[in-house]
Amino acid sequence: MNTIRIAAPRTAKRGEIIELRALIRHPMESGFRRGASGEVIARDIIVAFECLYDGEPVFRAKFFPAVAANPFLTFHTVATESGRLEFRWTDQHGAVFSDAADLTVET
């Protein structure tokens, strides 16, 4: 169960710059640490994030082992049309975690 928290405005004026924030529960295990008995703890990280605005990518990020656990992102986009904002994380095994928020654009 990957808990996701998203902060996005519900409404915005056309052309307004909106702030989007996204937080996901993930250990981001770097692969460089060792356990209590000396064994290497296998790497387990999210490798990619993207935010789709009505299916079109407006923000992309690549993650690496140095990124802290429970990665948090803040970014901006311009409100153009009413639509759905989808937030998608992909881990190194190809598993996808996602959540979405609906934005209403007022003219």
Partner: peptide, 12 residues
């Protein structure tokens, strides 16, 4: 409350 990662656990 959004920046605080502890709320991942509160939500859950």
């Amino acid at each position: 409350d959004f920046l605080n990662p502890g709320f991942l656990w509160v939500d859950r």
